[in-house]
């Protein structure tokens, strides 16, 4: 039974049925955290909320200013690309979503989100939080979806070092705080603290989104490769609100942001 499940998709309909059936239990299981959030909000002093509101307004102003600069740079980049007869870069739009369930096992890193087919979600769609890439959608239902996180041991993502553009593959290790770069030669130009972003190779993840930063580099005795541990940029086990990324390639959500 395990072998059949591992090597075939014969049980996928059972899994989908179970996903649908278990959803109400996820809803009930989230009640304590919702009550906690509500109690937290209710017990917060008015002056604290006002201060936070002011801080958020200031932050919003700063980001809007930076966005204007970004728009200018994007337009300039587009003009230069046209001059070079290069292809136009794809524009991404996003959809905000909320986590409604987390896999209870430390061996399988998946989570359920409250967006599904009716919102245009599709299998393979990237998701991210405010800090970086989180994973991709693996199952879509009418009103919810299941995402595989980048830290799952079956997941791999093409990345590049921001400093020098060196490409590699970051693999999950079943540890929420660790990814690994494999088959990097001992002469590879990589340092502790280097930022890694998605390279866009393979076409699954859009390029340029933060994946993580190099935490440690170790030499494996007797091997020609080094072991590079990466701390994910996203708060994999903490983020509650996520973003679904739609590239213009998908055609379902062109340039709209929610």
């Amino acid at each position: 039974m395990m072998t059949i499940h591992y090597y075939t998709n014969w049980f996928s309909s059972i899994e989908k049925f179970a996903d649908r059936s278990i959803r109400p239990f996820y809803w009930v299981a989230n009640i304590p955290s919702r009550i906690g959030e509500w109690a937290d909000l209710s017990s917060t002093d008015r002056s604290v909320i006002e201060k936070e509101n002011l801080r958020l307004k200031q932050e919003s102003l700063i980001y809007r200013g930076q966005l204007q600069r970004m728009a200018e740079l994007a337009a300039e980049n587009l003009r230069l690309r046209l001059l070079l007869n290069a292809t136009e870069l794809l524009t991404d739009s996003i959809l905000v979503t909320e986590v409604i369930g987390v896999s209870p096992s430390s061996k399988s890193h998946t989570l359920s989100i409250d967006r599904g087919l009716k919102d245009g979600v599709y299998v393979g769609q990237p998701i991210l939080d405010a800090e970086g890439l989180m994973g991709q959608i693996i199952s879509v239902f009418e009103n919810h979806s299941v995402a595989l996180l980048i830290t799952d041991n079956t997941h791999a993502i093409p990345v590049q070092v921001l400093r020098n553009g060196m490409r590699s593959i970051a693999e999950g290790t079943s540890d929420y705080n660790n990814l690994q770069l494999r088959f990097l030669s001992t002469t590879a130009d990589i340092r502790v603290g280097d930022e890694l972003v998605s390279s866009g190779l393979g076409g699954r993840f859009p390029p340029g989104y933060p994946v993580g930063s190099v935490l440690s580099i170790g030499k494996i005795p007797g091997e020609n490769f080094i072991e590079v541990n990466v701390r994910p940029a996203a708060e994999i086990d903490r983020s509650k609100h996520l973003l679904l990324v739609f590239t213009s390639q998908d055609g379902s959500r062109n340039g709209n942001s929610q």
Binding site: I22, F25, V28, A29, S33, G101, P104, S106, I236
Partner: peptide
């Protein structure tokens, strides 16, 4: 069993997951 399932599904942070 339903109660056990709900308790099993209550989300906890990665640091506390081995203790669940």
């Amino acid at each position: 069993l339903m109660l056990a399932l709900v308790l099993q599904l209550i989300p906890v942070s990665a640091d506390w997951l081995p203790w669940k």
